[in-house]
Structure formats: C-alpha cells, structure tokens
Design a protein around this nucleic acid. Structure first.
Lengths: 276, 276
DNA sequence: TCAAAATAGAACATAATCTATCAATCCCGG
DNA sequence: CCGGGATTGATAGATTATGTTCTATTTTGA
C-alpha cells in the first residue's frame, strides 16, 4: 500500500474510532510501531489529529465538547440510533445536503468512508468530512454564527439556490405535529426551507426531547418530509399526533436505557510474574 | 486504553454521575487509586472538574472559563514573530481578509480579543474566530479543499467580489523577487488576486524558508503589497533582491535561537529524598 | 478535645513509550 | 544493471506513566 494512502486511511480510522494506540495501528496496517509513530507525526503536522501518549486522538476529541449536561449525554444515544437509520437511506454517488447541528454532525461521522458529494453550512461538519478522501465537501458560505458554528446569512441562502441535491437531511431543535418544524430566526428558517426546496427528497432528524415546542418561524410541515426519523423516547400520544398530521414516522430502536455499559475491559495483559 | 482518552471519558463519567470517588474511578477504569487521583488533578488543571476530598465533582457553574492558554503548542518561531508584526498593523473596527494557511491561522489566534470583521476562506480560521465574542466572522464558501481545508472554488471568488476590506493578509507558500507570489493552482491564484483587489491595502506574510521558489500561476509582484513581512532567517542576498524589485520589506525580530528550557526540576527534587 | 480511620501527597521502582540513530530494503531513473 | 534517494525496521538511551510504599493531612466519632 502507498504510504500516502495508508496515512489517509489512518487518519480516517482514528476519526471513526475516536482514538487508537500505536500498536493497534501497527497491526492493522501491517507496519512496525515505529512507522506508525512516524505516520502519526506527519498527520499531526498536517493538522489531521493530535498525537498523545501511546497513540493519537482526533482533533475534535476534546473534553471541551463534553460538558453538556447529563441530559444531553443521554440524548447522544438517541442521536446515534437516528443517524444509523439515516445513513442507510443514502446511496453512493449521490449529492446530499446536511443541515447544521449536532445530530447532522453525528450523521457526518458515519459518512467518512462513503462516496458522496456533501453540501453543508456547518463548519464542524465540513472540517470533519474534509478528512475523507471519498467525500467531496462544499460549504455554503456567509456570516458565521458563533453559537451554532455554522454559516447563517443571506449569502448562504444565495449559495444554495442553484443546488440540485438528491436528499436533504434537516435537523431540528423544535418540532410539533401541528406546526411542523420551526426555528428561532428568520435566516435559519430560510436556509432550511431552501435546503428542502433544493432536494429531491427531504428527511427530518428529530430528537424526541424537543417534541412539542415551537419557535417563531415555520420551516415546513411534517408531511413535507419524505420521512421523519426520531427515537423511541417519543411518547405514544406524540407519535399518533404526528402520524395523523400526515408525517411518515420512523422510530429508531434504542440499544438500551442510559446505562453507561459497565466496563469489563480490565487489563489482562498484566504480567503474571515479576512480583514478589 | 489511551491515557488521553481515559481522562476524557473520566470527565464525561463525572459529568454524568454528578461526582464520584477515586476508588470507583479506579475500579471502573482498571487503574490504581493513585493514577485516578493524578488524572483528576490533570483534569482539574484543565478546568473540566473540581477535585474534592475523596473524589471529584463537575463544575456546572461557569459556562465560560479560561480560554485556551495553549503555550505548549510548539509553533514555528518565525511565524509567531511575523504575525506579531502583522497584528500591530490592524486597527480596531476594520474589516480584514485572511488568506488560507498556517501563517494566517497563527495571525487569527492573535485576533480573538480584537473588535473586527474578518472574512476568510479557511475553515480552521473561521472556527477559531467563531469562539470570539468580538470578531464577526464571514466565510467565503465553496468546495472544500481537503489538503488546505479551505474553500477553493469558483463560487469562493464570486463571494469575495463585492467585498470592500481595509486590509488583506496573504500568506504564501512560494515567493521570489522576480516573479513575486505564485501558487500551484489557478483557483487559488484567483482567490488571492481577488482578495488583494478587494482590499485597500495588502500585506504579504512570507516565510523565509519558502523564498526562491515559484509555481505556475502568478498572483502579484512583491511591489503590489504595501508591506512584505518575513523573518530574520532570510538571506541578505534575497533581502536585497526583494527590495530592489520594489518590495517594502519588514523583517521580524526572532526572539532567539534554541532556547534551552531544560526542565530539571525532577533532578533537584530527587535529592531531597529522606527515608526511614 | 483526642484518637482512629480514611485520604492525599511524595518518593521510588518498574514498565511502557518516545526519540535519535543506523542499517536494510524498496522504488525509480539512467 | 547499477546507484541515489526515500521509506522502513531495529536498537539503545531518554522520557513518561503507573503502582506501591510510606508519611502527612483531613475527617469522623466518641
């Protein structure tokens, strides 16, 4: 295998795994530990990851991102199950639009090894997918919103106007059977609406935790989406109401409740001898 | 498991649980109590939690703590000295254009507390400055180049066209007294040229290491810049040649060559050992 | 208040990893 | 077919992380 290609796959691997040690890399790529270290050093210089003691972690892997409240952590499982469904709906060699947000960011992580054209307004998504050799990333520019870290501007809408995409994946903060998807600002509403208009098919990624609320600006009704993906924490009443309003709901199977999976990863590699 | 990753998960665990004791952590991560304590200390120094008697608790109080004090990041001294000069040329409340690249990224780090409007094509710069409360960031969109992680597209040029900026800071890989600034692709050339055209004043940030090379596409001559900032590693001959070609050169003072900085506190501490 | 228990901290030994260096191998052009 | 450069693998010495032990400090209970 070509060294350049190996390094590219290595960066991808670390992005997907969320960090690995040098020995695993050496075994996986059939190289020596020394070469693995050298590769990691090169990749660090190119700003693709961060070398740590014993291996490397992706750049976006920081406890900075973690301190969301415990509720947000619990929602991570929901997002993962939603995006697992979403990724199956995407065909290779298609062009998809990705809305800004944490749910779509989770979806982007699953697209690193797919062959796609992706258009987004989210800087973190663009940066993440830029590490992929198979995804062509396009960023709709404009003023960067400090909170969402995404472009949110009149010119962002202009950029999207001539786009013809296969699918648009819209994430939402707030949704409701009656009012559909709503947002907090007119510009964000325009961007979401434009994305839906540009795509042949639109899919809504909706956390169940946000159901039943609404914001000033209406984006689209639930029936306007080919599919509404949500998680199993959605109350039955909400589910019925949504379906009655014309929505095609798909509920993701959650692995289990918020149990943090008690670790049995005790170190077995400990030497048997050597101790008095 | 990687130490870095273990600590990150530890921070997450404490966030979820709302606090834990060291023994639980030791059992959970299959480490000794002493190591758990050490990890907690590190995490406390990074402001992710608060160490208490017997364990640690999350700090749910301050949403904004200390910004990164990343002195540890080993960056090229040359770039730092160049950007130190550049930052003095920027006036508050002005609008500046930042080219893509590592030198301009260094410059961006110095702008976090300035009151500015910044327009850039570089995703990392945009993401960095989005954290600032005083900088308004605009990203010129388009196809994301995986190598430079910046937008580099026809539409990127289009975005820049109507811009009126006070200053443009152009970084360059290759420069030369005779040919000026040149780049490896036509699109990059167009973007740099456009930035120069959009600004009242253009400043070139040029590593001395790259002097004397050229690429296929010419951006501008050195005389087209109000100022060419470089470091003191530039050979005298090159300096004279550049000035003769009409460039206004400003050479940054490098702090000093290899600072020893030997951490010898360990050796000293070892002597103090007293044993029963 | 004092004494016992529990926990924190320092020091050291050990194990693991990193860095620097050199030799072997592979690739490519002449 | 040969030679130069780049890549790779192996080794030794330095550095870092971890676990254990011992001592100092804090907490708890009477």
């Amino acid at each position: 295998m070509l060294p350049a290609r190996r390094r590219s796959e290595m960066a991808l691997f670390i992005q997907q795994q969320g960090g690995t040690d040098t020995e695993t890399l050496a075994r996986r790529f059939a190289i020596s530990v020394m070469t693995a270290r050298r590769d990691l050093k090169i990749l660090e210089q190119q700003n693709f990851l961060k070398v740590t003691w014993g291996g490397a972690v992706p750049l976006n892997f920081r406890p900075h991102d973690v301190p969301y409240a415990s509720k947000a952590v619990a929602m991570l499982e929901a997002k993962k199950s939603i995006t697992a469904m979403a990724v199956d709906m995407i065909k290779d060699d298609s062009c998809i639009l990705l809305d800004a947000g944490t749910t779509t960011l989770e979806l982007a992580k699953r697209l690193l090894d797919r062959r796609l054209t992706v258009i987004t307004t989210d800087l973190q998504i663009a940066l993440l997918l830029a590490a992929s050799a198979t995804v062509s990333v396009h960023l709709a520019g404009g003023r960067v919103d400090p909170v969402s870290r995404a472009c949110s501007d009149v010119s962002t809408v202009d950029y999207l106007t001539p786009v013809c995409a296969t699918q648009a994946f819209i994430g939402t903060n707030v949704w409701d059977a009656e009012r559909g998807v709503t947002t907090s600002s007119a510009v964000k509403m325009q961007i979401k609406s434009r994305m839906i208009a540009c795509a042949e098919q639109s899919i809504l990624l909706a956390d169940s935790s946000k159901y039943g609320t609404f914001s000033p600006w209406a984006v689209a009704g639930l029936r306007d989406f080919a599919c509404v993906l949500t998680d199993s924490n959605l109350p039955d009443a909400a589910r019925e109401a949504a379906e009655q309003s014309g929505a095609t709901l798909r509920v993701a199977e959650m692995p289990s409740a918020g149990v943090p999976r008690s670790g049995n990863r005790r170190r077995e590699a400990r030497k048997a001898g050597g101790k008095a």
